[in-house]
Structure formats: C-alpha cells, structure tokens
C-alpha cells in the first residue's frame, strides 16, 4: 500500500510540473482528488487492509491528499498571477507589426487571370522559342516577304533567317506542325518589336494567343468564347463588339473592342471619346495557314485570337505608362 502511495506521489510531481494552464490543472485535480480519482481509489481499499497496517497507510494517504491540495492551490496562484502580466500599459495607436509578404508582378497576375479563364474553357497552355526561324513568324502565317502586311510586324533580326518572334502566333504553327487536330491551346509569352519606346510602346511585351482547330469550328464560336473571356475579365456589364479587320493569318478577321471600362461607354480620354477600347485581334484560321502546316483546309477549320497582356493590365489597373512594368519600382510593384 505504501508503495502504491509513493508511486502516486511521484506521478503527481511529474504531472504538476507539466501543468501550464488552468485546464490541465483541473484535469490533474480530477485525476487525483476526484470522486473516482486515484486517492479515492486507495481510500476505498483501506478497510480491506490488515489491522496493524491501517493507521500508517491512513496517515500517509491523508498527507498525500493534503499535499496535492496545497500544491494545486499554489500552482493555481502562480498561473493566475502570471496572467495579470497582461495588464501592462501599451500605446494601441502604434502601428501593427505587419508580417512581410512579397507580390507577384502585375503582368504575372494579369497573365494568370487570362490563362485561368481559358484553362477553365479547356485550353492547354503551350510555349515556344523566342528566337525563331523567320518562316514561323511570317511565311507560315501567310505574311509574305516584302509585303506591306509585314509593316505591322517590324522585327528584331539576329541573322538572315533568324529573328525574335514579334508575336506568339509562331507557337500556333509549331503546334499544328507536330499535332493532329483537335487542338485547343493558348500560347503566352514574351514578344519583341523594334518600336520606339514611349508611354504606350515597348520593344518587349507579353502576348497571349489562342488557337482551336477541329472539323466544325465556326466564326460564331469565336464570338462565344471571347464573349465569356471579356465578361469574366472586365466584368459582367462589359459589352464586346466585333469589327471586321485584317490579319494575314485569319479570314474572316475581327478586331474586338470592349465598352470602355473607365467611362462605361460614355466617351472619355482613355477611349478617345469613342466609348470603345480595342483589346484583341481574332478570326477564323486562314486556309493558307493550314496549307502551310499540311492540314487539309477542306477538312479542318479553326479559330485564333491574340491579345497584348500589358495593354490589358494597363486598362485593368488604370496604368498610363507601359514603361512602369519594366522599371520595377517597389512603390509600383507593392500596389498589386
């Protein structure tokens, strides 16, 4: 019996040493002093002891019970007095300590948003080289050598037939060369044009192009898909309009305008008082592009579209100078 009492005493020393709060203290009290606790359990065994052992065991057990009670109370006092430390005076108007965090570049955020919309529509993300053969940038896309349609695509050259791609349409050709339809992909990436740098022109920028090829793709599908995109990207109230235009690699071609997100179409400085903002070019794939990649233009039809990411980010965030994206001023980067 005395051994048992010692064991419980040892156990209690351990437990009380680890008690860090009121909840554990209560658990300990129940464990030792509760109606079905360890002490009560030993108490209930006292009557069955041999006569001569009863007094000593009773004494020891009472001492233990008193000690447990005392130490629990003492522990409780220290814990409570510790709690009173929080009554310290502070200046609540001092700035909070903000956990540091970094930001993604606004171009990345815009790209993620654009990609996300098309990915949800089943488009696969595809990439291709920035240093390209002239063929992929021009001839395969029905942009003949020395034709005025090339004027819109001034290009950096590395050597005679090698250049920096001036649009990501190059990736369209590469995909079609090595895959059979159906194709459904978007192609984000950096593109380069030797434009004099000003508030709206940069010699490097980002594009996202999209391509779908299948047996029964129609121009009306382009309208359906881009309608979802413009509404998701710029808001439910944004209207999109399709205007006939010209791109050598699509036929029919369209320029897509959205109702000005600044003035809601009323006319303002940003939309040159037209109420509309040009945001992307699109069309059904020109059969000559299919011929260039070895697809049968009779069998397949396609749709393609392309947009400048900087332009979209500028409209979305109200940024008025494209150079800000590449200056990397921390006061700019921290805003997005």
């Amino acid at each position: 019996m005395l051994e048992k009492i010692n064991e419980i005493a040892q156990l209690f020393t351990n437990d009380i040493g680890n008690a860090r709060g009121m909840q554990t203290l209560e658990e300990i009290r129940v464990k030792y002093l509760g109606r079905k606790g360890l002490v009560a359990e030993l108490m209930s065994k006292l009557p069955s002891l041999e006569k001569e052992k009863k007094p000593a065991a009773g004494r020891e057990l009472n001492t233990l019970k008193a000690r447990i009670q005392k130490e629990l109370e003492a522990r409780q006092r220290t814990l409570l007095s510790g709690a009173s430390l929080t009554r310290e005076e502070i200046d609540v108007t001092m700035p909070g300590i903000k956990p540091p965090e970094g930001r993604l570049h606004p171009i990345t955020q815009t790209l993620n948003e654009i990609n996300g919309i098309f990915v949800s529509l089943g488009f696969k993300i595809a990439e291709g080289p920035e240093i390209e053969k002239e063929f992929y940038n021009f001839e395969a896309l029905n942009i003949p050598l020395e034709h005025p349609s090339r004027d819109a695509f001034d290009t950096f050259y590395i050597k005679k037939d090698t250049l920096l791609r001036s649009h990501t349409s190059t990736v369209q050709v590469r995909i079609m060369e090595k895959t059979k339809p159906p194709i459904q992909a978007i192609m984000p990436g950096r593109v380069y044009r030797p434009d004099a740098v000003d508030a709206t022109h940069s010699f490097m920028f980002h594009q996202v192009e999209g391509l779908m090829v299948d047996r029964d793709i129609k121009f009306s599908d382009l309208k359906g898909i881009l309608n979802i995109f413009t509404k998701q990207m710029f808001g439910e109230k944004t209207e999109a309009r399709f205007r006939p235009s010209f791109f050598p690699f699509t036929e029919p071609s369209a320029e897509v305008d959205i109702s000005c997100i600044m003035c809601r179409g009323k006319g303002c400085r940003v939309c040159s008082h037209t109420g509309w903002l040009e945001i992307l070019g699109a069309g059904t794939v020109n059969p000559r592009v299919f011929e260039a990649v070895g697809y049968s233009p009779r069998k397949y039809k396609g749709l393609a579209f392309g947009m400048g990411v900087e332009r979209i980010a500028m409209l979305k965030y109200g940024i008025d100078d494209i150079r800000l994206f590449f200056e990397n001023d921390i006061r700019f980067l921290k805003q997005f």
Partner: peptide
C-alpha cells in the same frame, strides 16, 4: 452573327 460555344478538344493535360 450568333454566339456559340464549340465542343472542347479534350486535352488530357492542361498545364505542363
């Protein structure tokens, strides 16, 4: 011209 939605191509992998 109406708005229509084409059948998706069924890419097995959307992101590399």
């Amino acid at each position: 011209i109406p708005l229509t939605i084409p059948r998706i191509a069924g890419n097995t992998r959307i992101k590399d």
